[in-house]
Amino acid sequence: MTVQPLIHARGLVKRFGDFTAVAGIDLDVAPGEAFGFLGPNGAGKSSTMRMIGCVSTPTEGTLSILGMDPVRDGVKIRARLGVCPQLDNLDPDLTVAENLTTYARYFGLPRAEGRRRAAELLEFVQLSDRAESKVDPLSGGMKRRLTIARAMVNQPDLVLLDEPTTGLDPQARHLLWERLFRLKQQGVTLVLTTHYMDEAEQLCDRLVVMDAGRIVAEGSPRSLIETHSTREVVELRYGDTPLESLRGKLDGVGERIDVLPDRILLYADDGDAAVAEVHRRDLAPSSVLVRRSSLEDVFLNLTGRTLVD
């Protein structure tokens, strides 16, 4: 049985004037999936999310959301979406609870129902004790949690999260991940963008790597790592020694070498063996780290650039 995808796009393009932000992408997101867009600044993640959220009109290509046409049925589709935009747009002069109850009214929910859901959602994002507080004094993480709660107020079929944890400290980020993971367990379809590898690995069943408006790779975090990187990565540091001069000498150690400004990455299925080979060639580094390969390495391999600069 094939399920109807919630998001279906073919050759999707977004241009601003003669600048192409999204350069023809294909997507299918199935119900219940947690799907991620991973990419650096300006990759076109938000532009894509805004087209999916029916607030930006595609320049070219086909797009259908929940089986409907975003241009013709924008209002109907948005009634079933939950959106957490990249920039918070909470009402600073309303209280935390009022932010939810007024938003619930936009979806035509009765007032009592809005109050009930607001209480439930504040419980869920652990903000119940701040219900009567204004929004302004909340921390960044609390605001983000409130925005996510607001996105859930209409019990959406599809939740769009544009960089849900950017700018948060690790503790706030982990709390958010945990809440999002619960949503996923409840069967909510999540689509999120992120620059963070660990976020994509934690939350996404499947993701696409975007760069300069294009999809450069697609798959589960594991399969991307298997296809586009090795099992392990060795990070070598050499203090102040110019690293480029070492490239030739390290040739043949591992499957691939990347020379970054501050370190050299060796891709190898057996990291310890690679380190032994480095020592055998008398190239002992000032520090060495053997780690499992991550999506960061996938991105570097695909584009030759690091993701977070």
Partner: peptide, 9 residues
């Protein structure tokens, strides 16, 4: 706030 409304129906 208008952007917030716009994302809703």
């Amino acid at each position: 706030s208008y952007h917030a409304m716009r994302a809703a129906p």
